Amino acid sequence: MGFKLLSKLLVYLTASIMAIASPLAFSVDSSGEYPTVSEIPVGEVRLYQIADGVWSHIATQSFDGAVYPSNGLIVRDGDELLLIDTAWGAKNTAALLAEIEKQIGLPVTRAVSTHFHDDRVGGVDVLRAAGVATYASPSTRRLAEVEGNEIPTHSLEGLSSSGDAVRFGPVELFYPGAAHSTDNLIVYVPSASVLYGGCAIYELSRTSAGNVADADLAEWPTSIERIQQHYPEAQFVIPGHGLPGGLDLLKHTTNVVKAHTNRSVVE
C-alpha cells in the first residue's frame, strides 16, 4: 500500500471513529477524501466538511520552486461564519470567499490569524475590503508590521502568557507558548472536538522541520505538551499544512522538532 493511500485511509478511519463516538456532533463529509496538494491548482481553494458547521479550507501556493498546501478553518456561528487564517495570499483568499459563498452561503463576518507569517495573514486586506472584521493577538499584529505583512485590524486580548485561553464565538483560542513562531495560536472547536494546530503542528508525513527561522526550538516541545494537557479530548487535529489526523500529530511534531534540534547540535 502506497504512503499517500495509507495517509488518506488514516484520515478516513479517524473521521469514521469520530462519527461513531459522537453521532450528534459529527456529520463528516462523505463526498470524498481530504484534498491534497496535487489536486488543488494554485489560485483555487477546496472546502472539506469535518463536522456539522465545521470545515477546513485548503489552498496551495508556490514557494521556492515548489507547491505547498495550506489549511485553515471555518466555523459556523449562528447565521454567520468565523474564518481562521487566510488562504495564503490575496488571490487565494478572494477564491476562498467565493467558494464559501458557493458552498455554504453564509457571510464571513470575523477572521482570526493564528500567527504573523504570510500563509496566515496574506489576504487580510481582501477580507477587510469584503467587510470582514480581522483579528490577531497584539504580538501577531506587531510582528506582521515588522515583517511588512498585512496586519489584522483588531487585537485579541488575554493571550499574552503561555497557557492563556479565551473564548471567541464558537471557538476557544489558546496560546501554548512559542513553537513554530513566538505568537502562534491554537484554535479548538469544543462542539466538535476539532483542534486546529496551525503551523505549530505537523502532518504525519512530514519528517523535516522546514521553516524554523522564527521558531523557538527549545520551547516548542513544552508548548505541545500544554496543548495535549489542555485538549486531551480532541479527536480531529488539523495541521497548518497537509493531512489531518488525531492527537498523534502532536507527538510526531515533537519528535521531528527534537530530531532537528539534535542534528543542529551535532553539526
Score class of each variant (00 low, 15 high):
residue 142 R to K: 14
residue 206 R to P: 07
residue 65 G to H: 10
residue 166 V to H: 07
residue 258 K to I: 10
residue 218 A to P: 09
residue 130 A to K: 13
residue 159 L to A: 01
residue 235 Q to P: 05
residue 155 S to M: 14
residue 143 L to I: 09
residue 103 Q to V: 13
residue 69 P to T: 15
residue 231 Y to A: 02
residue 257 V to W: 03
residue 23 P to F: 09
residue 216 D to Y: 07
residue 150 E to H: 04
residue 144 A to Y: 05
residue 188 Y to M: 03
residue 69 P to C: 06
residue 180 H to Y: 07
residue 75 V to T: 04
residue 238 I to K: 02
residue 252 H to L: 03
residue 241 H to P: 03
residue 132 V to T: 06
residue 142 R to Q: 13
residue 128 R to W: 07
residue 60 T to K: 08
residue 200 A to G: 04
residue 246 G to V: 03
residue 164 D to T: 11
residue 84 I to D: 00
residue 118 D to E: 09
residue 50 I to R: 03
residue 98 A to R: 14
residue 220 W to N: 01
residue 146 V to R: 14
residue 75 V to H: 00
residue 102 K to S: 13
residue 232 P to S: 11
residue 207 T to L: 13
residue 172 E to T: 04
residue 222 T to K: 12
residue 68 Y to S: 12
residue 76 R to L: 12
residue 58 I to W: 06
residue 102 K to T: 11
residue 21 A to N: 15
residue 234 A to D: 00
residue 182 T to D: 11
residue 32 G to A: 11
residue 191 S to L: 08
residue 154 H to C: 05
residue 132 V to F: 01
residue 238 I to F: 06
residue 159 L to D: 01
residue 167 R to T: 13
residue 200 A to T: 07
residue 12 Y to G: 10
residue 245 G to S: 06
residue 120 R to W: 01
residue 38 S to F: 12
residue 27 S to V: 14
residue 231 Y to G: 02
residue 164 D to L: 07
residue 258 K to N: 13
residue 35 P to R: 07
residue 253 T to C: 01
residue 178 A to D: 06
residue 90 A to D: 15
residue 68 Y to A: 13
residue 250 L to F: 08
residue 43 G to D: 09
residue 214 D to H: 12
residue 180 H to K: 01
residue 249 L to E: 02
residue 6 L to N: 15
residue 85 D to Q: 00
residue 217 L to P: 08
residue 183 D to M: 01
residue 129 A to T: 10
residue 67 V to Q: 15
residue 51 A to F: 06
residue 157 E to Q: 12
residue 138 P to S: 09
residue 221 P to T: 11
residue 230 H to I: 09
residue 119 D to Q: 01
residue 122 G to W: 07
residue 211 N to I: 09
residue 35 P to M: 07
residue 52 D to T: 11
residue 7 S to N: 10
residue 109 T to M: 11
residue 54 V to E: 02
residue 265 V to S: 12
residue 241 H to Q: 03
residue 146 V to N: 13
residue 153 T to G: 10
residue 19 A to G: 11
residue 230 H to W: 07
residue 257 V to D: 01
residue 36 T to P: 12
residue 173 L to A: 03
residue 11 V to Q: 08
residue 190 P to M: 07
residue 217 L to N: 04
residue 217 L to Y: 09
residue 90 A to E: 13
residue 231 Y to W: 05
residue 173 L to R: 02
residue 207 T to R: 12
residue 262 N to F: 09
residue 244 P to Y: 06
residue 47 L to Y: 00
residue 183 D to H: 01
residue 267 E to R: 11
residue 266 V to N: 13
residue 164 D to K: 09
residue 267 E to M: 10
residue 50 I to C: 03
residue 110 R to N: 12
residue 260 H to E: 14
residue 243 L to R: 15
residue 6 L to E: 15
residue 61 Q to G: 06
residue 179 A to F: 04
residue 243 L to G: 09
residue 140 T to C: 05
residue 136 A to H: 04
residue 164 D to I: 06
residue 173 L to E: 02
residue 58 I to H: 12
residue 211 N to S: 12
residue 252 H to K: 02
residue 245 G to H: 03
residue 51 A to R: 08
residue 35 P to C: 06
residue 96 L to R: 00
residue 86 T to K: 01
residue 69 P to L: 14
residue 21 A to W: 11
residue 40 I to W: 08
residue 66 A to N: 14
residue 218 A to T: 13
residue 234 A to G: 04
residue 197 G to Y: 03
residue 160 S to C: 05
residue 14 T to Y: 14
residue 62 S to K: 09
residue 206 R to C: 10
residue 250 L to V: 05
residue 86 T to N: 03
residue 247 L to K: 14
residue 89 G to I: 00
residue 7 S to L: 07
residue 130 A to T: 09
residue 155 S to Y: 08
residue 39 E to G: 13
residue 113 S to V: 07
residue 138 P to K: 09
residue 26 F to K: 15
residue 150 E to I: 04
residue 85 D to F: 00
residue 28 V to Q: 10
residue 245 G to V: 02
residue 262 N to W: 09
residue 196 Y to N: 04
residue 91 K to C: 06
residue 139 S to N: 11
residue 68 Y to D: 08
residue 26 F to G: 14
residue 230 H to Y: 09
residue 156 L to D: 00
residue 2 G to H: 15
residue 25 A to F: 11
residue 172 E to G: 02
residue 256 V to L: 08
residue 219 E to S: 12
residue 121 V to Y: 01
residue 141 R to S: 05
residue 224 I to A: 04
residue 48 Y to Q: 12
residue 146 V to W: 13
residue 200 A to P: 01
residue 243 L to H: 15
residue 193 S to V: 07
residue 47 L to M: 09
residue 220 W to S: 02
residue 168 F to R: 02
residue 192 A to P: 06
residue 3 F to C: 06
residue 87 A to H: 00
residue 11 V to I: 14
residue 73 L to E: 01
residue 13 L to Q: 12
residue 7 S to W: 11
residue 172 E to P: 00
residue 2 G to K: 11
residue 253 T to N: 02
residue 131 G to R: 07
residue 13 L to Y: 14
residue 261 T to M: 11
residue 161 S to C: 07
residue 47 L to W: 02
residue 57 H to N: 05
residue 249 L to S: 05
residue 240 G to W: 05
residue 205 S to P: 08
residue 85 D to C: 00
residue 213 A to S: 12
residue 267 E to P: 12
residue 34 Y to V: 08
residue 16 S to W: 15
residue 21 A to C: 15
residue 56 S to R: 13
residue 192 A to Y: 07
residue 14 T to A: 08
residue 209 A to K: 09
residue 177 G to Y: 02
residue 161 S to V: 13
residue 202 Y to P: 05
residue 226 R to H: 07
residue 166 V to K: 09
residue 67 V to C: 06
residue 241 H to C: 01
residue 111 A to W: 02
residue 174 F to K: 00
residue 74 I to M: 05
residue 236 F to S: 10
residue 135 Y to S: 01
residue 241 H to R: 04
residue 172 E to Q: 06
residue 170 P to R: 05
residue 251 K to R: 14
residue 119 D to I: 01
residue 260 H to N: 10
residue 238 I to L: 07
residue 260 H to D: 11
residue 1 M to C: 04
residue 214 D to W: 06
residue 75 V to N: 02
residue 51 A to Q: 08
residue 68 Y to L: 07
residue 219 E to M: 11
residue 96 L to A: 01
residue 127 L to Y: 04
residue 43 G to R: 06
residue 237 V to D: 03
residue 88 W to E: 00
residue 267 E to S: 07
residue 51 A to S: 10
residue 166 V to W: 05
residue 70 S to C: 03
residue 170 P to C: 03
residue 239 P to T: 04
residue 30 S to K: 15
residue 189 V to L: 05
residue 23 P to N: 09
residue 141 R to D: 01
residue 135 Y to A: 01
residue 210 G to M: 04
residue 202 Y to G: 04
residue 234 A to T: 08
residue 43 G to E: 07
residue 155 S to P: 13
residue 43 G to A: 06
residue 111 A to C: 07
residue 93 T to H: 02
residue 58 I to P: 03
residue 215 A to P: 05
residue 18 M to C: 14
residue 249 L to C: 01
residue 153 T to M: 11
residue 221 P to F: 05
residue 265 V to E: 14
residue 157 E to H: 11
residue 114 T to P: 00
residue 30 S to N: 12
residue 93 T to G: 00
residue 159 L to C: 03
residue 92 N to E: 03
residue 238 I to E: 01
residue 102 K to W: 09
residue 43 G to S: 06
residue 222 T to W: 11
residue 229 Q to A: 13
residue 120 R to V: 02
residue 116 F to S: 07
residue 140 T to R: 03
residue 7 S to C: 12
residue 260 H to P: 11
residue 147 E to Q: 14
residue 64 D to Q: 11
residue 189 V to R: 01
residue 43 G to C: 04
residue 159 L to K: 00
residue 72 G to Y: 03
residue 253 T to A: 04
residue 28 V to A: 11
residue 237 V to R: 02
residue 44 E to K: 11
residue 109 T to W: 06
residue 93 T to C: 00
residue 256 V to Q: 05
residue 221 P to E: 10
residue 230 H to P: 06
residue 226 R to G: 05
residue 176 P to A: 05
residue 101 E to G: 11
residue 202 Y to C: 05
residue 183 D to K: 00
residue 251 K to D: 14
residue 172 E to Y: 04
residue 208 S to D: 13
residue 77 D to R: 02
residue 263 R to T: 14
residue 45 V to T: 06
residue 265 V to P: 13
residue 76 R to H: 08
residue 109 T to S: 13
residue 59 A to Y: 05
residue 59 A to M: 04
residue 248 D to K: 09
residue 210 G to Y: 02
residue 140 T to W: 02
residue 207 T to W: 09
residue 160 S to D: 14
residue 144 A to W: 03
residue 108 V to P: 09
residue 76 R to M: 10
residue 30 S to D: 10
residue 146 V to D: 14
residue 241 H to N: 01
residue 103 Q to A: 12
residue 127 L to Q: 01
residue 260 H to W: 07
residue 45 V to F: 04
residue 46 R to Y: 09
residue 177 G to E: 01
residue 127 L to C: 00
residue 128 R to N: 14
residue 229 Q to C: 04
residue 177 G to K: 02
residue 156 L to N: 00
residue 36 T to A: 13
residue 59 A to W: 03
residue 6 L to Y: 14
residue 135 Y to T: 00
residue 191 S to Q: 13
residue 28 V to C: 07
residue 162 S to L: 10
residue 167 R to P: 12
residue 42 V to N: 11
residue 215 A to Q: 07
residue 74 I to C: 04
residue 18 M to Q: 15
